[in-house]
């Protein structure tokens, strides 16, 4: 069933890609240009999606005859929790400029550890040490400008 839907999704996606590609300009001296490859890829998606959907039509009919394990019960709570890491990534993206990379990472790790029932002191310890270590490793030694957090640099200048 889900394969059938995914096949449909690929077909629609491929169609959109082809449509968008038609707006690109053509190359001098050639009849095609930057639209050629996206169109071919879109075409591939449509055909592949179609094949996937069609082969599953047969199985859809069979599904009534024999029970299938996958459809049986779906763990919606688990699905929701599995989105938590993504939510924390979004949190990092939005908050790191202000709170700083280290604090955001520590907070995210703490939440993730606690939700799986790790002990509080252990989670705190690990998340603080790891966040600080990553921050120092990346910004000091690998010269990657991780956001240090405007919150702290401002309070600092005032404090001094």
């Amino acid at each position: 069933m889900r394969d059938f839907l995914l096949g449909l999704a690929f077909m629609i996606g491929g169609g959109v890609v082809i449509a968008v590609a038609q707006t690109y300009p053509t190359m001098p001296a050639l009849q095609f240009g930057p639209s050629l490859f996206p169109s071919l890829i879109g075409g591939g998606m449509v055909i592949g999606g179609l094949v996937l959907a069609l082969t599953r039509v047969g199985q859809l009919k069979n599904a009534f005859a024999g029970p299938r394990s996958q459809v049986a019960s779906y763990d919606y709570r688990g699905l929701l929790i599995s989105l938590l890491p993504c939510a924390l990534v979004v949190f990092y993206i939005l908050a790191s400029e202000f709170l700083g990379a280290a604090l955001c990472m520590a907070a995210s790790m703490l939440v993730l550890m606690l939700i799986r029932g790790a002990r509080l002191w252990l989670s705190l310890l690990v998340s603080i040490i790891v966040a600080a270590a990553i921050y120092v490793l990346f910004s000091r030694y690998l010269l990657i400008p991780l956001p240090e957090g405007t919150l702290f640099s401002q309070t600092l200048t005032f404090a001094w």
Binding site: P85, L88, V89, Y92, A101, M105, S108, M109, L110, L112, M113, R116, G117, A118, L122, S123, V126, S127, V130, A131, I134, F138, L142, I144, L146
Partner: peptide
């Protein structure tokens, strides 16, 4: 894994940024 996975997430974020 309940300790390891959050740590990996942090590496993912800074790795993608880097």
């Amino acid at each position: 894994r309940k300790i390891l996975m959050p740590v990996i997430l942090s590496f993912c974020i800074v790795g993608a940024f880097a």
